[in-house]
Amino acid sequence: MHPAEALFDALLLLSMVVLAWQGVHARNMFRAVVSFMMFGLLTAVAWVRLEAPDIALAEAALGAGLTGALLLATLGRLKPERRGARLQRAAKLSMLPWLALGLAGTMTLLAVTLALPAPGLGERVLSAMPEAGVDSPVTAVLLNFRAWDTLLEIAVMLLAVIAIWSLGQDVLASTSRLPAPSLPALVRLLFPLLVLSTFYLLWRGGHGPGGAFPAGALLAAGLVLALLAGARVPERMTGAPLRCALAAGLLAFIIIAVGVMAEGGVFFAYPPRHAPMLIAIVEIAAGLSIGVMLTALFLGGEPTDTQGGST
């Protein structure tokens, strides 16, 4: 490794530890949220350094962007006296055992990692690539070899949306908004670009870094920006169309997973000649659903707002 790279990595790791510390020990919640967002951004850089651009894309869009927007929106809805409230500080005395425990845990993890077989499952994935139906190993793992895991991830997201929506109505209507003419102008410019990038990443997922999760996150970023700029869910979209969009990814996944059994296959074992098309369908449906689900999480409840226009 080049010395400059080693220096960069060391600085990156150090900043991440400092930011993580600040996130937990910040003077107030706002600082904690900002530290968390910066931590997400640096985590994305760390994934780039580990040559995992797929995860870096998803982390940058989700960890730094959308989670930050969610946390800031939540902060904005807290009562002012709680928003600025000092976070409870851990007593100085209790820190030492935790530090020791953390160090011991890190050492154990390191030992376990070093003891693992070095290339991991990489070889097996690469040897199975001819039957995968896509050229990108990451997409092959996510949507073919380990599609079951991805199916469950999407199911968990949908459950989260259902849980949040069952708590009450959307909270956007009650938030105060700043008169800021520049934001809608920015959204008008960025929204089409973000939708275009969503489809670019969906298409690119077949042969390079990209795929359903980063694409969905970008779509959600566009939709959340539009919501922040004052757009509301159009009335004809609420109800059935919105629910269909939310469930589309999971539905497509399950239908295909069960459907391939009709050809005499096993649950989720795509027949190789149909694999590219089936994966493309799942990828597009999952990407769009992830985008809508993330936006639904931001809405904080089923949209009931009847006034206001759309984008």
């Binding site: 700043l178 008169p179 800021a180 520049s182 934001l183 102008a185 920015l186 410019l189 960025l190 670009l193």
Partner: peptide, 19 residues
């Protein structure tokens, strides 16, 4: 893109501070 979003963010932060 950074020019456009940076300018908008600055304006938003300044407006929020004034408000």
């Amino acid at each position: 893109l950074v020019i456009v979003s940076g300018a908008t963010c600055s304006s938003l932060i300044a407006r929020a501070a004034l408000a």
